[in-house]
């Protein structure tokens, strides 16, 4: 069985005056079509670097990434990026920004067709009526909506998001999380997303990738989300397994992200990091206790 997206032993090194900085090497991860994966790890561990390699904006210094049977060599309309800084073109209107992407995807389309298509996706993210505003006239949340509309409008095979909501206030972040989840579930979108917000990962992700601290970061664990698929953001905390999962993630960030880099567990295999599924049954809730990790 071959995965939809397959990261196969990629490495990234930067040459610095003090020697080579190996951000990570021999990194393996695979995703199925329609899956939503979140990556969690401390700042500087190399999350953005991984995402840039997936987008094709950066090249790995070793290894390959295979997407839908083809090795990635450079950016592609198959993989849309939602940038943390939204990266809208400030001289274009909302419609202009989205239409630019649509016209790049469909070079043979007429102006009207491009416009209609762009307007449809502006409506999907709830920005109908703001089509002719410039980005400078929009709030942070609205700008990020335009970024999402632009990414969705090219109907990519995969969506790549780098901390898309981290610059937003909690309320706006919540509504945008709801919409992204709704759209992705409805359309079966494959998503790779970086976040540092544990609750965001719990709400959105099917699987959560835990990266150890850098340099020489690795994937410590892959956490399967035990929460039901029809979970809702506002009563997430009422799910029986919520705290087990949350504690597991926080415990990782607080303690194990450092420990696991320096001393990987016995039998650790970079190609098949341990897969865990923290539930009420496996994790005694309440204490940040030493844990058992189910083998992969």
């Amino acid at each position: 069985m071959s995965a939809y997206l397959s990261i196969e032993g990629i490495a990234r090194r930067f040459r610095t005056p003090k020697g080579t900085n190996t951000v990570f090497e021999d990194l393996w991860f695979a995703m199925d079509k329609g899956e939503f994966a979140c990556v969690i790890g401390h700042s500087g561990c190399g999350k953005t670097t991984v995402l840039n390699i997936l987008s094709g904006l950066e090249e790995p210094d070793g290894g390959v990434v295979i997407m839908d049977g083809q090795a990635i060599d450079g950016p592609s309309l198959d993989r849309a990026v939602i940038f943390q800084s939204h990266a809208l073109l400030p001289w274009k209107s909302v419609l202009g920004n989205v239409a630019y992407a649509v016209a790049s995807r469909h070079k043979d389309w007429s102006r009207e067709k491009v416009r209609a298509h762009a307007e449809r996706f502006i409506e999907v993210v709830g920005l109908k009526g703001a089509e002719h505003k410039r980005p400078a006239e929009l709030s942070g949340g609205m700008k990020q909506r335009v970024g999402i509309a632009r990414a969705l409008s090219i109907e990519p095979k995969m969506l790549l998001m780098d901390e898309p909501f981290s610059a937003l206030d909690a309320l706006t972040r919540g509504t945008l999380q709801d919409e992204v989840r709704r759209i992705c579930v409805e359309t079966g979108q494959t998503v790779f997303m970086i976040t540092h917000d544990v609750d965001e990962a719990i709400y959105l992700a099917d699987r959560i990738v835990l990266m150890t601290n850098g340099p020489q970061a690795s994937i410590a664990e892959i956490v399967e989300n035990p929460l039901p698929r029809d979970r809702r953001r506002l009563d997430l905390h009422k799910q029986p397994d919520f705290y087990a999962l949350r504690n597991h993630l926080i415990d990782f960030l607080v303690e194990r992200s450092r420990v696991l880099r320096d001393s990987p567990p016995a039998g650790y295999d970079r190609r098949r990091p341990p897969v865990v599924r923290p539930t009420l049954a496996t994790e005694p809730v309440g204490a940040l206790s030493p844990r058992r990790t189910a083998g992969g």
Partner: peptide
């Protein structure tokens, strides 16, 4: 800004079009 150029790259915009539109 690098991010604007990256937008063009991820949209597979050619060099000439990139020069004129970005």
């Amino acid at each position: 800004r690098r991010e604007w150029l990256n937008v063009a790259r991820t949209l597979e915009v050619g060099p000439l079009k990139r020069a004129f539109t970005i």
